[in-house]
Design a protein around this nucleic acid. Sequence first.
DNA 1: TCCCCGGGTGTACGGTGTACGCTGTGAGCC
DNA 2: GGCTCACAGCGTACACCGTACACCCGGGGA
Lengths: 235, 235
Amino acid sequence: MVGRAEGKGTGAHRRRLTRDLVVRTAVEIADAGGLEALSMRALADRLGVVPMAIYKHVASKEELLDAMVDVVFSEVEVPGGVGWRRAMRERAISMRQALLRHPWAVGRMESATPGPANLRHHNDVLRCLREDAGFSFRMAVHAYSAMDSYIYGFALQEKTLPLESPEAAAEEAERRARETARVMVAETLAREFPYLVEVVAELGSGRYDYAAEFEWGLDLILDGIERRGKGDVGE
Amino acid sequence: MVGRAEGKGTGAHRRRLTRDLVVRTAVEIADAGGLEALSMRALADRLGVVPMAIYKHVASKEELLDAMVDVVFSEVEVPGGVGWRRAMRERAISMRQALLRHPWAVGRMESATPGPANLRHHNDVLRCLREDAGFSFRMAVHAYSAMDSYIYGFALQEKTLPLESPEAAAEEAERRARETARVMVAETLAREFPYLVEVVAELGSGRYDYAAEFEWGLDLILDGIERRGKGDVGE
DNA sequence: TCCCCGGGTGTACGGTGTACGCTGTGAGCC
DNA sequence: GGCTCACAGCGTACACCGTACACCCGGGGA
């Protein structure tokens, strides 16, 4: 009586559970409803299975999350044979897009227990910096640290600063207005924090282009790395 | 019978609850045991009070966390009158140190409901960029985005990549070795990801200096901002 | 002096991750 | 072809979480 629910209207579940299926379904749920929508019970429901069945394929929720992070890593590509700078640029943009698709992964990409795709990704990037760019070990580490910090930090801000889509912006603006009113009346706020209100207006206006902003900083960092990379090749 | 537990050995609690006391105690708990140690019950215990008493001073745990983030913001200073570049550099370092003291704040600094210290901080930084550096509005936004992304991203990696202290490194190295062995045998791993093992060796060796790494990238970014800032003053 | 109101209490509810023991079943072996 | 045995999925149970709600008592204003 394994697949007893096969006649269900949703037809969402499959014959037999697999670790892979579990992880992919978990990613779907988290993509749709965020991490707080991903409970073991909800996941089990979606799989047409009882919660504890999941634990036959995954040791704990923590391990499940690690596995989910690894599918995100598997989605970002490190191009080869296009020169280090272009490869790093495209890899950064690819990473940002993956994190945009899976915002729940943002704070969790660098866990203490990396999966295979994670290892592979880091190794590819390092190889690009050492071989294609010809950087020294130290220089490669510097470059990697700078790029990844920027990428993850940008993704974090983009995720957490919500005012993006127009419809959400309206509702959000109203909510935020009422919220911050608690802290200070609007006019007083404008008088006390003039520089700030200037930019939140810009952010809320919908004129703000996150992708362009990302690339501005990315190119700044790549410029700096390239400049510091000259004369480093010898080591 | 307000202070009924005043005779307790710990003597940790005070006469009367205050929102401020609640928030500060919550910060202490999170500093010591991480966010997962901060339950409303644990907080209440520490305050010598019943869990629901906290809700008389704080609407929800979410609001409590927001208030906690604001005390972190209140700890980082934006120096004035020292030139924009030095001010931004010291502010970044100050921010990193605050996040090192309060790692639980790392992913939560830019919430949708900023507190007064948060607003003040952002306004100060913006004023520095507009007035002291003389940047245009657009340029100031670019610079701010680049700096904050880098700072938060670095803090995130520093928090999440654990191998820092020597004693923790040993235990961690052993655990990680066993952990990644699940993924691939050690020698095979070295053969498959040669560039990677090179840097994890460095990271685990204790020779890696996070502060220096942070400042390397920070100066790279400040250089880039300064360079791009020339000829921008006109707008 | 009385009243009121706000901070602290107690209980309870629905939700979470997961430990443990059971059972039915399909694959592998004689 | 029949037997067996590991193992996937089940059911129950537990400890803990955030928090809604009703109560209650003591100190300050009228």
